[in-house]
Computed example of a mutant assay.
Amino acid sequence: MRPPVPVAADGLGDGVASRTARPRSARATAWAELLRLPALFTVPGDALAGAAAAGARPGPRTLLAIGSSLCLYEAGMALNDWADRAEDAVERPHRPIPSGRVKPAAALAAACGLTGAGLVLAARAGRPALAVAAPLAATVWSYDLALKRTPAGPAAMAAARGLDLLLGAATTGGGTRAALPSAALLGSHTLAVTAVSRRETTGGSVLAPLAALATTGLLTRLVTHHRTRLPAGRRAAAAPGLPGSGPAGKPSTTGALATALATAYAATAARPYFHAALNPSPPLTQRAVGGGIRATIPLQAALAARSGSAVTALLTAALAPAGRAFARRATMRKVSIT
């Protein structure tokens, strides 16, 4: 429970203000918990990596794609807790809906409104973007309402992340084909994290974190040792081998940056996965899920560098410290990223 707002020494006006502020602050915190606001920083990198894979710099349409992604991501968060309200009442009664701090109807209305907003923003970015955003929205709703507890659940979540990256590529006018390898790599990471998250409240799974650990190692190797099929403008600067290799096969700036960012990805994800494999208790499993989610940002940045865009990679990587700073704010201290 947050400490009360201090009352002024004279005991007058500020005390009334504090009583008004507390309910507003409590409502804001409840919605921040429902929408997992700290996790929002893992979303813009999808569109940025997609634009980089398509050989384009971020532009106004990329910003629209990011806005669409954020809306659809938050729609999924609200819908997830609405769909899980009965289960959470038993396993996680502190969450906003079972605790009564957010009404179920309000969460469902938010999911609907955010989905609509996401599709509108995608339409503003162009028909190709809308053509990707529509199946992305359908995948989000299908996962939360039908697929989450089925064997297809992790694959559906992986497809959603992959489509989100393709949404960024679709805004460039160059098509999404060039971004398919990056989408597949990001989707594989999401598949592994989602598989671990299925035992988040019960623990007991050694295989899932071990598989996620192996996936992390494989993805790190692929990002650092296999280059993307670069657009024509960047192909001349890339020789076979490392991404963006320079003359005589020496790593270029983007190749070295991709390696550094992939290493940061592995360091962020591997340790909590390893701990969860050694002791698959609910707390360590939850920590592994959180680590996997946080590792999404350096992976997105590594994919952008792998595509030859150092500026986009650095911009994406900067989202990680920004997200940590946001999560450390007083109102965010009890807001879980998972």
Rank of each mutant, 00 (worst) to 15 (best):
A9D: 14
D14H: 14
R22K: 01
A26T: 12
A28L: 15
E33M: 10
R36P: 00
A39Y: 01
P44E: 09
A47Q: 09
L48A: 12
G55P: 01
A56R: 03
G59T: 02
R61V: 00
L64S: 08
I66H: 09
I66A: 12
C71W: 03
Y73I: 00
E74P: 00
G76L: 01
A78Q: 09
A78M: 08
N80M: 04
P93Q: 11
K103F: 08
A106H: 11
A109I: 08
C112Q: 05
G113V: 11
G113H: 08
L114A: 11
G116R: 12
A117T: 06
V120E: 06
A122V: 06
A125V: 08
R127H: 03
A129D: 03
L130P: 02
T139M: 07
T139R: 04
W141Q: 10
S142R: 05
L145Q: 09
L145T: 14
A146Q: 10
L147Y: 15
K148Y: 14
R149M: 00
R149F: 01
P151F: 11
A159V: 06
A160Y: 02
G168A: 07
A169C: 06
A170T: 04
A170S: 15
T176V: 15
A178D: 07
A179V: 04
L180S: 05
L185N: 00
L186S: 07
G187Q: 01
S188N: 01
A195P: 03
V206H: 15
L207Y: 00
A208V: 06
L210T: 14
T216K: 04
T228G: 09
L230I: 13
R235L: 10
A238H: 11
G246H: 04
P247C: 02
A248R: 13
G249T: 11
K250Q: 09
T254D: 11
T259D: 06
A260L: 11
A260S: 15
A260H: 08
L261K: 06
P272V: 13
Y273N: 11
L278C: 15
S281T: 15
P282I: 06
R287S: 12
G290T: 13
G291R: 07
G291H: 04
G292H: 01
R294E: 07
A295N: 03
T296W: 02
L299F: 05
Q300R: 02
Q300S: 13
Q300F: 03
A302T: 12
A304Q: 02
A304M: 09
A305N: 10
S309T: 14
A313L: 08
A313T: 05
G323A: 11
F326T: 03
A327I: 06
T338V: 08
